[in-house]
Design a protein around this nucleic acid. Sequence first.
DNA 1: TCTGACTTTGCAACCCGGTTGCATCAACTT
DNA 2: AAGTTGATGCAACCGGGTTGCAAAGTCAGA
Lengths: 137, 137
Amino acid sequence: MKRELDHKLHLRNIKPTAMRQLVLHVLTEQSTAISLPELEQIFDRADKATLYRTLKTFEKNKLIHRINDGAGPVKYALCQDTCKCQPEDLHVHFLCTKCNQTYCLTEIPIPDITLPAKFSFENVNMVVKGVCANCAI
Amino acid sequence: MKRELDHKLHLRNIKPTAMRQLVLHVLTEQSTAISLPELEQIFDRADKATLYRTLKTFEKNKLIHRINDGAGPVKYALCQDTCKCQPEDLHVHFLCTKCNQTYCLTEIPIPDITLPAKFSFENVNMVVKGVCANCAI
DNA sequence: TCTGACTTTGCAACCCGGTTGCATCAACTT
DNA sequence: AAGTTGATGCAACCGGGTTGCAAAGTCAGA
């Protein structure tokens, strides 16, 4: 277990400190994306700035990706092992309006968009809102 | 001019106070979306809370719509006269990574997405990032 | 093994966008 | 003219995000 976590960190060139192992462990346990404030609650003895910088490091090294779902704080979720955070790795995110959980729909690529003349494409963010399977009656 | 503004307010059942006329006037002058902090700078003698509540009122009455482009503060842009803020009124937004301006691409509808089983659709937000025509070399 | 350079952590403080409570003011009704 | 309602201005607060700085930890080379 710890081996796998260290391996993941190693793959992304991140030094495996105790803090980072713990944070990564929590991240792997999540089925939905998690925000910094939520992380603070889980580690109620840990420092906010450290958690913040840990997430920054993870994001910079493409271990996690940031999700802006428009519902408060930014959330983070693990990248696929093969992810390079390129356009082809982008996928749709889903925000449940009942439980406020955000899902990575990794199997749903984002459709192509034809932009107006002289507008160039770099990146795209797509968030669908609705009710998730867990909250469906 | 003032007539048109009052008419727009009237159409959306918003009482035409001086403040609201001024804010609406500024909004109609923008070719791109504007944030509350930007609005504060334009009206440097006006109160933040008043501007805030003015935008809230406009949004509630569907005179403007909120755009969350992930680049700092929420931005707002005028709705089309016919807009009911229903899914069919949704369009793609474009954030220029050079000038940080956000455009409503009202002519580009958001493509349909097939969600996983038992996930229901309510709403969708799509923001394309890139370089806009003005900033293209 | 010791030393020095570099990284990570913890604490504190700060910034800024957003939001609310409350008193005052304006407009409109009767 | 008095009373009701809504709008405004001011102040304060909240929470997420961010940074400066000093202490602790890590590691390579002597």
